[in-house]
Structures are given as C-alpha cells and as structure tokens.
C-alpha cells in the first residue's frame, strides 16, 4: 500500500507542477523506443521534482533527421550511438559541460572516458553499450556459427531463412568484415566486391527488418538473423532456441550515449539527469531492462543474475570488435546506391 500511496502522491505532485506550469522543473528527453524503464523516469521526477516528458525514435538517422528538421531546441537530452555523437558534434548540435557540473562523472569506466567519438567526454556520457552480430536457431542448424558465412554464404539449412537489419550502416559494415576490407573503403575493386557480395547473398535472405529482428527469431519466421546482443538475449528469454554468434571475421560494437543538446530548454535538469544516470544503481536498472551493458563502475551488485551470466553480454576474449565508422560523403553516396540497388 505504501509504495502505491507514494506513487499516487508523486503523480499528484507531477500533475500539480504541470498545472502550475513552472518553467523550471521540466526535462524533455528524446530517446530510442523501449530503452528506458518507466520506474527510472518516475524516480528521477520524484527525486528532483521535475516533470519529465519523452519522445522516441527508431534509428540514429531518424534522430538526426528530426533534429535537422527543426526540433533542436525542443529537447534537453538525446541518446545517439557512437558515430552519431561525432556527426552531431560536427554539425554543432551538442552543448558541452564540465566535470565540475557532474559529480558522478568519475563513475564512468576509464575505458569509456576518452572515446574517439567524443574525446574526454565534452558533451556525452555512456548510456549502454552492446554488440551487433547475429543469432542462429540451434534446432535448425547445429554447425559452427562463429563466422559471417552464416549471413553472406549460408549453409543449406539456413538459406532463405535469414533476416538482416534494415540499416545500410550495420549490414554493409558486417559485409565489409566478411570480406576483410576496411570500412568506408574508397578502393573501387573493394567496393565492387562488397556490392557483388550483398547482391549475391540477397537470394538467401528472407527479410530486412530492425524492429522486428527479435520477433522473427521467436516466431520462427527466420532461423538466423542479424541482431543486437540485448535484443537477441530477450529473444532467447522469450523461448527461441537461439545462440548469439561472435564471428571470427569480427563483429560490431556500439555505445549509445546521453548527449546534452544545444539550446536545451532545461540545461540544468539535463545535467542532473545525466548525473542521475551515472549512479550505479540507476545504470544497472537500465541494464536490467534493456539487456545491454552499462559503462558505469560499480553496477554489479544491482544487476540481475541472468544479465551477469548471459553469453550475449559476455563476449569471448580475443574477439574482433569494431565500431561503425561514419563514412565520407563520397563513400556514403556509393553505399546509398548499393543499398537502393539491393532493394530495387
């Protein structure tokens, strides 16, 4: 009864503060879909007496498009992936903060402080990180899955039963790893080889889909599918007999980051929120919900047991993880043509 009363009281307080329309005491978040538990938002709202509102997007590119279309200045914080932080910073969409403003800054794990996409963390803090490769249904295929052949030169059992992510960036990056060519290569022969590879592999693919990546594996529509590790773990927990692969050719790692947006209407609350997310208990709550990994020190005591032991979240030693690089305009144009030709 007590927690119910408290929630009721805080809801009342929120309503009141909304009714009184106090300019201070608001926070506007722009976030991925299904990526933060409601309890965490409520907890922040209660602790800091702030009215929290959130809109969602479904890809880094959609976030960028929306901000470019005039939404910059509406939101305080957003959660772009690594390469998108760099793109947004270069486009002047981010504000900076100092470490003094954020008491919990030192909770960030050292390896995530001086990152290439935001050296020294001027505008961003780690949210969650994870990997992108693929999961394979073990009822259908029992052979070795730690190779990108599963997607680009699949064994007989998996042909025509593969889902790939519907984003050119991740799919073409995994294809580049398969060929062993550098990302964003400008070499014509390498680009032609990349084009031939995806054109030839498409006949084995049943579908392109990102938000459905989990569903197709659970339902059995696909027997193998590119997927993000936490999403793959959720699929496994929902009953699919699948195993997440760490291909020897390499796999993609990414980190989503909370960034302070330029012209944030509530800059002070944005900083408070970022600081709040660096509390180990809160970072762990996000991990327990989203099934990815926090970049914050001291989260272990708060983590679910399943998260600690999940193979999806514990990559083997000596793997070959790579970040997606933002390509130059020239290369991106070729990728666009390749992608359109692939789906024509």
């Amino acid at each position: 009864m007590k927690p119910l009363l408290r929630t009721g009281a805080s809801a009342l307080a929120l309503t009141l503060s909304a009714t009184l329309a106090q300019a201070e005491g608001e926070l506007s978040i722009y976030h991925w879909f299904e990526y933060i538990p409601q309890e965490i938002l409520d907890k922040f709202a209660e602790e800091y007496d702030v009215e929290v509102t959130m809109d969602t997007y479904d890809s880094n590119e959609a976030l960028l498009a929306s901000l470019k279309a005039g939404r910059l200045g509406d939101y305080d914080v957003a959660v772009p992936g690594d390469y998108m932080v760099e793109i947004m910073a270069n486009d002047g969409m981010l504000d900076t903060f100092t470490r003094d403003e954020m008491p919990n800054f030192d909770n960030i794990l050292p390896e995530w402080v001086d990152v290439s996409f935001d050296p020294g963390r001027q505008s961003s803090i780690p949210y969650q990180w994870g990997s992108t490769s693929f999961s394979v249904n073990r009822d259908v295929y029992s052979g070795d899955i730690d190779t990108t052949d599963i997607i680009f030169d699949p064994p007989e059992e998996l042909r025509g039963k593969i889902n790939v992510l519907d984003t050119a960036g991740e799919t073409l990056t995994l294809a580049s790893l398969h060929l062993g060519i550098p990302q964003c290569s400008t070499d014509r022969e390498e680009l032609e080889a990349l084009n031939d590879l995806v054109q030839g592999a498409k006949q084995h693919w049943a579908s392109f889909g990102s938000d459905v990546a989990k569903d197709v594996l659970v339902s059995g529509d696909a027997a193998a599918g590119m997927i993000w590790n936490g999403f793959g773990m959720k699929a496994r927990e929902e009953g699919a007999n699948i195993e997440y692969a760490y291909p020897e050719q390499g796999y993609i790692v990414w980190m989503d980051n909370v960034v302070l947006l330029k012209d944030a209407p509530n800059r002070e609350n944005a900083i408070k929120f970022m600081n709040f997310l660096l509390e180990p208990e809160n970072a762990a709550a996000v991990t327990n919900y989203a099934r990815y990994t926090a970049g914050v020190d001291g989260v272990e005591p708060f983590l679910d047991a399943e998260v600690k032991s999940a193979p999806e979240l514990n990559p083997p030693e000596g793997g070959n993880p790579v970040f997606v690089q933002p390509c130059s305009e020239e290369v991106q144009k070729i990728y666009d043509t390749m992608w359109t030709n692939l789906k024509k």
């Binding site: 890809s59 590119e61 960028l64 498009a65 049943a206 579908s207 666009d336 359109t340 789906k343 024509k344």
Partner: peptide, 23 residues
Amino acid sequence: LLGGAKNFMIGSLIDEQFKGAAG
C-alpha cells in the same frame, strides 16, 4: 511488414530518403 522490406515500393523508397542512412 508482410513483404519483409526486401523490395522497395514507392512509399518505402521515399521513407528511406528521409529516415534512412541515405538522408
């Protein structure tokens, strides 16, 4: 959703230009 997004139709082609990597 039903065609597996394997082949663009006009609507999805336009959608890709605004929301996808093509930008």
